[in-house]
Design a protein around this nucleic acid. Sequence first.
DNA 1: ATCGAAAATGTGTTCGAACACATTTCTTGT
DNA 2: ACAAGAAATGTGTTCGAACACATTTTCGAT
Lengths: 342, 342
Amino acid sequence: MEKKKHTIKDIAQLAGVSKGTVDRVLHKRGRVSQEAEDSVKQVLQQIDYQPNPMARNLKNNKIYRICVLLPDPNQDLYWIPAMEGIKDAINEYKPFGVTIKEHLYHPYDSASFHEKCDEALGSAPDALLMATTNQKGFVGLLEDCKRKGILVAFFNNYIEARKNQTFIGQDLYQSGRIAAQLIEKFVADTAKVAVVHIDKEQHMQLKEEGFRSFFEERKSSNTIISTSFDTDPESETLREIKSFLATHSDISGIFITNSKAHIFVECMKEHRIVVGYDLLEQNIHLLKEGRIDFLIHQKPKRQAYLGIGYIAEHFLFGKPISDQNLLPIDIVTSENVVYYLD
Amino acid sequence: MEKKKHTIKDIAQLAGVSKGTVDRVLHKRGRVSQEAEDSVKQVLQQIDYQPNPMARNLKNNKIYRICVLLPDPNQDLYWIPAMEGIKDAINEYKPFGVTIKEHLYHPYDSASFHEKCDEALGSAPDALLMATTNQKGFVGLLEDCKRKGILVAFFNNYIEARKNQTFIGQDLYQSGRIAAQLIEKFVADTAKVAVVHIDKEQHMQLKEEGFRSFFEERKSSNTIISTSFDTDPESETLREIKSFLATHSDISGIFITNSKAHIFVECMKEHRIVVGYDLLEQNIHLLKEGRIDFLIHQKPKRQAYLGIGYIAEHFLFGKPISDQNLLPIDIVTSENVVYYLD
DNA sequence: ATCGAAAATGTGTTCGAACACATTTCTTGT
DNA sequence: ACAAGAAATGTGTTCGAACACATTTTCGAT
């Protein structure tokens, strides 16, 4: 009773040829007379034929293999959500014949990184999903993948994706601007604000640039200072932070450029506007207590999940894969945090 | 070379029976000896068999029909994004044999609503996606669907979903609380804030309740007043708003409970903290100009898209459908608005 | 005209699940 | 013990696309 979708057989019948000929026209395999080709193409123009993805994939009957290259979440808890996203994706795409293998390296051990790289590439996967890090040998790895025709997807920090690559993440510069905007709304016109880097990494610089750019555009008379702390075992981090706070008691807004806001905030006695990153348990706790005002959510779980998803649906259903997928920069407060968890 | 997925044939071989018997066990169709059933079930326990969704669906070969019941976006521009989401979903799921038919009724014409209801239900679809409205006959419609076994999904405003129903949207009460939190952070401890309803509808009440609850919990000494305006052609809306502003010049924060913040804000001369809803073009313009501070994004496009998506994937791949899908309440500023557009 | 090669076209099989149908095995009453 | 009927089990076909393979047609060279 329902007009069912057109099939190759239908087209063949309408064009007065066999399904083999239609197939040859569709796939441009040649061996078709001009006459037959024309009549098939005419039919194709009239009906809009879209091949049945189910049938196509069933015939394909390929097991797609995706390798994930990630710092071990047991070593750096930051990666736990990403791992969860990957687990979700595994469950979602397993029935479709997508297999995913995780290769977890030690975050601060270059040898481990290379070992896992070799392990992953050695298994000659169809695609590789990896967190962007500033590990040495990163560029070489990419070239290797390109040579071997392995599709690469990154997530986490921004990297410019080239051909056969895709990136899932946020615009870090812009997230710095958002932090600035939130703080600027709160503090007095002449207030002093601080950019705080803890265990500085490269991506934080972009955030600071974005942050400063916002104030500069406003031609505000706010003072912006920036500072860094390290949490090396040998350094007395907490004392340094407290000392900083003591000598800068006139600061009224603080932007902490990574997930470690909780370390800094625990040292603060009186309230100041605080904007940080990431929904770590400790950060959420402080958010709910009102000691952190806003957290910018980088959505590592979703990034990882989408990374797998884009790859899988590209292989399975031939969906186009775009080289850049910038996710919204979500502003999280104690009142809406619950919707962003898991 | 790759361990390919287990098939019914594999199971049959392992259990020493034919695929027909395995099929009967899997679908509990009976006509299987205890002995055969045990041996198949034992194999099933050892390997974790998941049927190939592609093959299943290919054989099914059913055209799923979804009807969408929506106010005409030409009459009320609010519904344009929802329509876009539906168009996207159509493109996405068409190749899988999902057909979607839109039934657009005139938003303020009850007769038109009923006509389109009958039209939609008359075509005996597999599922119905509709925007929640307070049209009369709404409850009757739902019972009709239930009786006919039609899966129903709602989006837009909250409604408690029952069996065979699903809801996609936001917690309105909570969104009011978020508005309150944003305003409370900005204004002085004793400041006066206003809740403004324009063309009052039922859902706005929930938002106001949430808004007030936040201030009450804080035991703040802020004063909260609420007021309503109508944009009937005969009422002099703008004059009334201006008059309100003149007599309440001490208000420092304003919460406008629907997408019509732009109407109110256009009447404001000096800046006050303004929180509104929805990414209408006019609102975005004012956001960028700094005359609106925050917009709460209700994501009508995504709601509609997800509505179709949940239904389609339920039918196609047997994904479970949950009765409530609360989307994050996104806080939008001029700096992150770009990521939420379309 | 006739053969051979190349070009054109048609046929058949596969993927995995689902189900209709065919066949075998078992049970029961006489 | 044997037929009849029920129960158990096996076989075959279908869905749509893809591709291997079989068959037919065309055309040039002799």
